[in-house]
C-alpha cells in the first residue's frame, strides 16, 4: 500500500524534528566529554570512543540535511534565532578558549602570557565582526 503523501510528509518532518533534538543532546554530550577529557585526561574516554561519537554526529547531520532537503526546510535565519545562535557561538568560543588555556597549563609562563594575549586579541576582533554582522 502506498503511503499517503501528507502522512509521508508528516513522518519526515517528525523525523527531522526528532533528529534535531538528538543532535542537540549529542552535541551536549560531546562538549561535556571534551571538557571532562581536558580536565581529567584519559579518564572518561577509556569507556567511550570520541571518533565514534563524532562519526555519529556526522550521521545525524547528514540525516537532518537529507530530510530538510526533501521537505525544503531552510535553516531559519530570522532575527530571534540568529541571536540565539550567535549567543551559543560566543559561549562555545569562550569555552574553547578556556579549554585551550587549560591544555597549555604546563607551558612556560612567558609563552603562556604571550599566546593568551594573542588569542584574546584575535578573539576580540572575532567577536567584533560577529556583533557588527548582527547589527
Amino acid at each position: 500500500m502506498v503511503m499517503k503523501q501528507s502522512t509521508k510528509q508528516q513522518l519526515e518532518l517528525l523525523a527531522y524534528k526528532l533528529l534535531y533534538d538528538v543532535f542537540f543532546l549529542w552535541i551536549l554530550a560531546v562538549i561535556f566529554l571534551l571538557i571532562a577529557q581536558n580536565i581529567l585526561p584519559n579518564y572518561f574516554f577509556s569507556q567511550i570512543s570520541l571518533a565514534k561519537m563524532i562519526f555519529g554526529l556526522f550521521a545525524i547531520v547528514f540525516l537532518i540535511g537529507f530530510f530538510g532537503k526533501r521537505q525544503n526546510i531552510l535553516i531559519d535565519s530570522n532575527q530571534e534565532n540568529s541571536k540565539k545562535i550567535s549567543k551559543i557561538f560566543i559561549f562555545l568560543l569562550i569555552l574553547s578558549a578556556l579549554l585551550i588555556v587549560n591544555s597549555f597549563r604546563n607551558l612556560e609562563i612567558h609563552f603562556l602570557i604571550i599566546s593568551s594575549l594573542s588569542a584574546l586579541i584575535v578573539f576580540f576582533f572575532f567577536l567584533k565582526i560577529i556583533l557588527s554582522n548582527q547589527k
Binding site: Y16, K17, L18
Partner: peptide, 22 residues
Amino acid sequence: FTKNIILEPTWQKIYSVGRVLI
C-alpha cells in the same frame, strides 16, 4: 530548535512522546 516547523495535532502528540523517549 524547530518551533517554526508545525506538525498536525496527531503528529505533534507523537513528536512530544518521541521527545520524552529521546
